[in-house]
Design a protein around this nucleic acid. Structure first.
Lengths: 208, 208
DNA sequence: TCAAAATTTGAACCTTCGTTAAGATTGTCA
DNA sequence: TGACAATCTTAACGAAGGTTCAAATTTTGA
């Protein structure tokens, strides 16, 4: 069972090579999942993108769901890194929120890393789903807190923070559905407009 | 083949009964699809919700995909009815847009009708998918036009209309992912806040 | 260069689930 | 009530695709 082999038996070079191969597989899988969804993507599909037979994948992952799971883990790691970065970086809640939106958009578009996190969560086993959902909830909590702070500071009007966060995350996650790297929309402008749109909507009372 | 039987052979009463049963099946399927996704939902799951064996479903629909397809058709009909209603109803682009957002939110929450339209599109066959996507594109075009009009009228700031529409639809479609009829969020407030948030964000230049 | 480890392959297995066929039960209506 | 349609059930099929396994091939490192 190569999957659980102790690191001590292999040289650093071999391990590094293996790590890279795993990353390649994850990337191929991620793209396939994004294009066709988890369930309609077969292991053959993923293997074909790598010029290999599907059984070769079992040398790196114990089963199909684990591939999806690792995609989720990577997304979450990226999100959490982003939250770290945001700490004490801007002095207004709106500023921090704008930063998070721009970064999240970047993550969603760069390498499409955030895509599976947006969809395909129900495909995971209960335990893994719980883990992913818990992490996602933490992130939502961070956003909610920023909105509450913005309201208290008078920067935002009084909205239901929970609903506002759902609106933002919906807009961002939906990117996985329409964005294409070779399309006309470019990530930086996308992030900027999303930040303006979603945060502007919290600041201004629309006239009825 | 009861699926293609001519109407003339059956009485109005029988046809009406059959129509209601079909609606029941669609509703059960819709709920199941929404909770677990199309692919993880089995015909047994749907049948169980109706207290019936899965083969009974074949008396009403030729196959599983057709059930999903009919869900989509109903969603689209609802959306198109909504667009009709909006015609010449408000005099500013922002007003019409706000109406559409509120109504779309209502459709998404009432009976969860809009849910499958939001997700599960890739599960359809190419022909059917093309049909659904075309209708969805028309809807997006309506929204885009309203935004362009709003910009020209000076009601909105200058944004990329396409991106703005994706932000709105993302926020709205995402409702299917988190909204629960027995949850704390109530549709009318949800629709109102979404309209304020998403349209307010088009009106006001956020200070950086 | 050579033995051991790593990687990939081909073939077969097995489960799930959509689907079909034929018959039983229920409902309709003259 | 009786014939016919409508509805549902039981049993079984078959294809798709994830998984296992033993063997072949390639790579590693001394």
């Amino acid at each position: 069972m190569p999957e659980s082999r102790a690191a001590s038996t292999s040289s650093a070079h071999v391990l590094e090579k293996r790590r890279r191969r795993r990353a390649e597989i994850l990337h191929a899988a991620l793209t396939a999942f994004r294009e066709n969804g988890y369930h309609t993507t077969t292991l053959d599909d993923i293997a074909e993108r790598l010029g290999v037979r599907k059984t070769a994948l079992y040398h790196y992952f114990p089963d199909k769901e684990s591939i999806l799971y690792e995609c989720h883990r990577e997304s979450l790691a990226e999100i959490e890194r982003m939250i770290e970065e945001a700490q004490g970086r801007y002095d207004t809640p709106g500023g921090r929120l704008a930063y998070l939106i721009r970064e999240h958009v970047r993550i969603m578009t760069e390498g499409l890393e955030g895509s599976p996190l947006a969809f395909e969560v129900p495909a995971l086993s209960p335990e893994r789903r719980a883990e992913i959902v818990a992490a996602r909830d933490r992130y939502e909590g961070v956003l909610r807190d920023l909105i509450v702070q913005g309201i208290e500071a008078g920067e935002f009007r009084e909205v239901d923070p929970k609903i506002a966060v759902f609106a933002m995350l919906g807009a961002i996650n939906w990117i996985a559905r329409w964005y294409r790297p070779d399309g006309p929309v470019h990530p930086p402008e996308l992030g900027a407009q999303f930040a303006d749109h979603l945060i502007g909507g919290l600041k201004c009372q629309p006239v009825p």
